[in-house]
Design a protein around this nucleic acid. Structure first.
Lengths: 185, 185
DNA sequence: TTCGGCATGTAACTCGTTACATGATTTT
DNA sequence: AAAATCATGTAACGAGTTACATGCCGAA
């Protein structure tokens, strides 16, 4: 599938940068829905160079550090757009360990079970707060239009927030159901 | 992490079965949140046998087919429960290709962009309907109590339904925003 | 007799993570 | 002087997918 390839091309399509810059972008902005380590990024950039989808120039700036600044080529851009605009069937649900554990939750000790659900709840509430702060810091109350450079950024952040809200709702429901065993009232 | 190991132990903890049975269970029931091919399952069962977590007996039934019926051992059960009741930090968001593409949606042709969102919408609506049918067929209107064998099954199905509903809501919102560019009214 | 389901396995490959490895520059 | 950050790479391993490979049984 080479998804990383297209993630890199997409970033380089926005602006030229080094492997290190890309690594940082993955850690900060895109981390919410895609991630990659430098150990994966550097070899992939090499591969893209071999394929003629990107080129690099070595920059020394004021220092003597050897930076490789990568730029996307026309061929790379064409490849990227082709991938971007391809309609694909939705994949099977991504694997989530906690959901697997939930499937087996009849085998858990009942006290422990509620503890685990509550632990998840707290963590997802924290994550939701973090995402909301992100949204406020990046967009305030302004909803970007499709013309804005960060429109995609906004949509993806919205997706993440809605996902967390739903997960929290689900976890609360799980805890509620766990406490309603033996309905003898 | 060895998650597959614990998925297999969890299934064998419910009842003894063959690798083929496990493969089928993955395809049907658990598929909604975890999946594995037989090419992964058979070697893992061998490994579990070596580790003393499962044992097997060869069954010929009425036919001459050699089936290996696997049974979990006490050691395997202890290992499974230890994994099941361990509290773990929530992982980073799983990678989703469509969200990556959404991030880059400013680079799409505007007509094509809406087409892609609508295609996703239709597919997720179909999936939601499928999940709801599943729920009705398996549970009807009855909400299982935590004592029920299929309580975990119910919770996981509920999670999947809520996730799809949220995704649909998000996609509709994306389409709405895409059609509100250049707000000159 | 051919096809689909039952039943088990291996091989090659891709993707991703963790760790190893180096070295300069900047901040404390 | 030490620690953090910039900057680039490789190696080993684990997990997962696709394809290869075999053989029985029952139904059409």
């Amino acid at each position: 599938l080479r998804t990383l390839k297209f993630a890199l091309l997409g970033l380089l399509n926005q602006q030229s940068m080094t492997g290190y810059d890309i690594t940082r972008q993955f850690k900060h902005t895109i981390n919410e829905f895609w991630h990659a380590n430098h150990s994966q990024i550097y070899p992939e950039l090499k591969k893209l160079t071999d394929e003629g989808l990107v080129v690099f120039r070595i920059e020394n700036g004021e220092n003597l550090i050897n930076k490789k600044v990568y730029t996307i080529t026309d061929k790379g851009r064409a490849d990227f757009i082709k991938w971007l605009e391809k309609d694909e069937p939705i994949p099977v649900t991504p694997k989530e360990v906690f959901r697997l554990r939930t499937f087996f939750c009849s085998d858990m000790d009942t006290v422990r079970r509620e503890e685990l659900f509550r632990s998840q709840l707290v963590q997802h509430e924290d994550r939701l707060q973090y995402l909301i702060n992100n949204k406020v810091n990046s967009f305030g109350d302004v909803v970007p239009t499709p013309e804005d450079k960060n429109f995609g950024d906004y949509l993806v952040l919205l997706n993440a927030i809605m996902r967390e809200q739903t997960l929290i709702e689900w976890l609360k429901h799980c805890i509620y159901l766990c406490n309603n065993s033996n309905p003898e009232l």
